[in-house]
Design a protein around this nucleic acid. Structure first.
Lengths: 343, 343
DNA sequence: TTGAAAGCGTTACCAA
DNA sequence: TTGGTAACGCTTTCAA
């Protein structure tokens, strides 16, 4: 296990070291005969190329930097499918994934690029006005954002289409003959952080409700914690005037507490009130009750982000990628929307 | 931003390249005067050393490989605190974190070592008989396991002390005058995978209950899914003979469904029955009802694992680390254990 | 306390 | 279709 080099492979295969290199990179035509001898030698020595040497000589690290929103608070629930999909896509392209936490801020980005730790960067959890975005844009490596900032500064972004998500929720409630829609908004902290989707969701919901002729109210902010949630829910229930009331819950973290508050008040979603969340599927599925949700499609979003990233690393001729790539959400019906009355 | 090298720094500082290197590594005494000039030059150029070149010449990557249990099913709920703590500890030692998913199996390990991608490896979610452990033990880089396999093969392991965890749960119920204890066990799949703690928990609980003179029954397997859970819960409730019944739930994934089943049956934990989970804190805290739990201490476990890892990379003279390092759990009382009757 | 120079293991150019 | 060889940017020995 004393770590063989391409020189060893060359010796065993009876070829030059450069030939070994060309067999690996495929950047030069190699006769079938030599190729086989080289591959055999590699096999025999269980040879693996030294990544540092390769990075130094070839100026390619075969590493993707991934900036994840740890350290930052927030919707950590749905994080894993993103990371998982990114890791698997990287692997499929023979790339490694280097983890950087968001609490490092721009310094993390500069380190990734400055030390030549990676060939490209994926950055998650982008805020509307995000300090890191201008820094990222100036980096000598391509950066793909998951999330859409106010000014993408020329960077490629991928995200859920939150406008459509809000519209789908409103449509579902309008289609099922609801008389009124209430959106329970975000906590003040989220609004201050200017997460890119907060505004998009509320605006789109309002607009669609108007178009569908259903009155829509937004209650916000909805803070975390027992009492704050209780208060918001009471405010919500006060609006129930015998009509069919539908609630849209666009903020992951508050959905659980809100459902609990409803239960405490003996208000049963799907019977007394309708509830639609914008949230990761597993959360909706495992919640009690399992609620109808508009999915955040972490796998689609991540996959598209990685497609863009590898395209930037190796632009296919004639193919283009959109600057802002919005992924269509999917509405999954569970039991929390009251069916249309049969009369 | 054209990436400066240590040669540039040397030129600006008016010293040799080797001096720049020695300033960075501190492996040679440098006069205060030269040191300052070098540091100034670095600052001025915003110099960052090329990690590939450094790895090649110095045979140190300053990278920690992290094998996470994605792709594998399972208790993904509590995963993030582990990753977060590991990332932060790595950063504190000026190391990067390279992510490898468990579904790559031993191939991932061999790649990490063979390509010189990292200096050391942390591997999570170790099964009792884990194919990767012998491979890891033969690697030319140190490996620290989070989890304890049947045969650690000389590797260092860190994990929660599940024996003590089980004992604490039993003690808490015995101390609060319970007449009977039931442990709702693991699904068959977990038992087959031979997760290292399954056996440890049940054995220790049985033993402690005997010592405390409280009858203890284990119901297992408890499969996932609505009906399976319901069945287990009915089986559980059938044991209630007017006495004080305490339940221990050692398996994360089943705790939510079980609590739900209890609620459906109008059995209120903390009033009609007692419940203690062995689970991550946030899960216990955010559950409804928030239940008394024995914490898995992901932060402590990860921190100790990283301490061991950096000790292996740079053994301090005179200091030793235990081969198997078990972290003490902590019991957090919430509302699901019935208080001692006051009479 | 410092400098010069020989590697480290690849890639890629220049020849053949 | 192949081989020789000069980088790549750092660390570290050997000299001074």
């Amino acid at each position: 296990m004393a770590a063989f080099t391409s020189k060893d492979v060359a010796r065993i295969a009876g070829v030059s070291q450069s030939t070994v290199s060309y067999v690996m990179t495929g950047k030069r035509p190699i006769s079938e005969r030599t190729r086989k001898r080289v591959l055999d030698a590699m096999e025999q020595l269980t040879y693996e190329p030294h990544s540092g040497a390769r990075a130094l000589a070839g100026r390619r690290t075969q590493v993707v930097g991934l900036v994840v929103p740890f350290g930052a608070d927030g919707q950590i629930f749905g994080l894993l499918p993103f990371i998982e999909t990114i890791a698997s896509s990287a692997r499929a392209h023979d790339h490694e994934v280097l983890l950087v936490t968001a609490d490092e801020g721009s310094a993390g980005l500069r380190r990734l690029a400055g030390r030549a730790l990676c060939d490209a960067i994926i950055m998650m959890d982008i805020e509307e006005h995000d300090d890191r975005v201008p820094v990222a844009a100036a980096l000598p490596v391509p950066v793909v954002l998951i999330g859409v900032p106010a000014d993408p500064a020329g960077l490629h972004c991928v995200d859920l289409d939150f406008e459509t998500a809000a519209r789908m929720a409103v449509d579902e409630l309008a289609d099922t003959a609801h008389d009124e829609i209430v959106v329970l908004g975000y906590p003040a902290s989220a609004m201050e952080r200017g997460l890119n989707f907060v505004g998009r969701v509320l605006r789109s919901a309002r607009q669609r409700a108007r178009a569908r002729g259903v009155p829509l109210t937004v209650i916000e902010p909805v803070e975390h914690g027992q009492e704050a949630t209780a208060e918001a829910v009471d405010q919500l229930l006060a609006r129930r005037g015998g009509g069919r009331l539908g609630v849209v819950l666009p903020h992951n973290d508050s959905i659980g507490p809100i459902l609990r508050a409803l239960r405490t008040r003996d208000v049963l979603p799907g019977r007394d009130i309708s509830v639609i969340g914008i949230s990761p599927d597993p959360q909706a599925e495992e919640s009690d009750p399992a609620y109808t949700n508009v999915s955040e499609e972490p796998r689609d979003v991540s996959r598209r982000a990685m497609e863009t990233l590898f395209w930037l690393l190796d632009p296919a001729p004639g193919v283009e990628r959109p600057g802002v790539d919005l992924v269509a959400p999917r509405l999954i019906r569970r039991s929390t929307v009251m069916p249309i009355p049969s009369n």
